[in-house]
Design a protein around this nucleic acid. Structure first.
Lengths: 131, 131
DNA sequence: GATATATTTGCAACGTCGTTGCATAAGACA
DNA sequence: TGTCTTATGCAACGACGTTGCAAATATATC
């Protein structure tokens, strides 16, 4: 069974061509993708359908939204951690998901943290080596 | 001299009614604001003018953008730290700027970090006390 | 203080993006 | 296979960020 099918089954989501295709694209591209990028990778599918597919995936917990960008980006969820670390390279623009460290948060009295979104902006290894 | 005027002078920005007003609004509201919220607070000024004012402030380093929201939010810069910590309350929706801790980032080889944006999502003290 | 120059303002308008409604097509289940 | 549920594609909307341009305003110079 394909990896895509296995994922859909794991999260209890109906298998359709669009959905299998979206997962394949995510598996192929290792960085976080915008809706537009997905459209570009699978032009035979409708924009709205991809949009709704992402919604369904998001609700089911298959993917994560990257916070920190004007246009939304998504990537397959790696683990169930509450800490989400993404790295945005200013040179190539790619957003990669990294393993999140423990964050020593010192929130003021009364504040309750549910999710921690970390976006680190800088230069990725590919781009820093090129110089 | 008003606080607004002092700020404008400090950053070498021309003083105009719009700009002084925008700063006053920021000083009054302690949380991060969207363009729309600013419009609401100063309806006698044009939407685009406020937009361009924010642009100018942003370029001059007067304000920071909060990353992590679909609609952009801005707040007066507190210090020159590279770590930006904002807290979004899921109940009331307000975004407050908190003092940022040291982040023990363990980036892979070759990654260079310039800015660290932290968005903590949860419940703020006001909303958690209400229950 | 008056004039010339550089910036800012307000208005109109556009493009992109996220989103919804609805009729049709396709998956699930008996 | 037939029925029911869910997904798809198309059209279209609204919000938001953005630009161009002419008029108004701030700053510099005399």
């Amino acid at each position: 069974m394909s990896q895509a099918l296995a994922l859909l089954e794991k999260y209890g989501i109906r298998s359709t061509p669009t959905r299998r295709r979206v997962i394949d694209v995510f598996l192929k591209c290792q960085h976080a993708l915008t809706l537009q990028q997905l459209e570009g990778e699978m032009p035979e599918y409708d924009r709205v359908t991809i949009y709704r597919t992402l919604l369904a995936f998001w609700e089911a917990g298959v993917i994560n939204r990257v916070l920190g960008e004007s246009t939304q980006r998504f990537h397959l969820k790696k683990d169930d951690s509450n800490v989400h670390l993404n790295f945005k390279c200013n040179e190539c623009g790619y957003i990669s998901t990294l393993d999140a460290p423990e964050i020593p948060l010192n929130l003021p009295q009364g504040f309750i943290s549910k999710h921690i979104h970390l976006l680190v902006v800088g230069t990725c290894s590919d781009c820093s080596h090129e110089k």
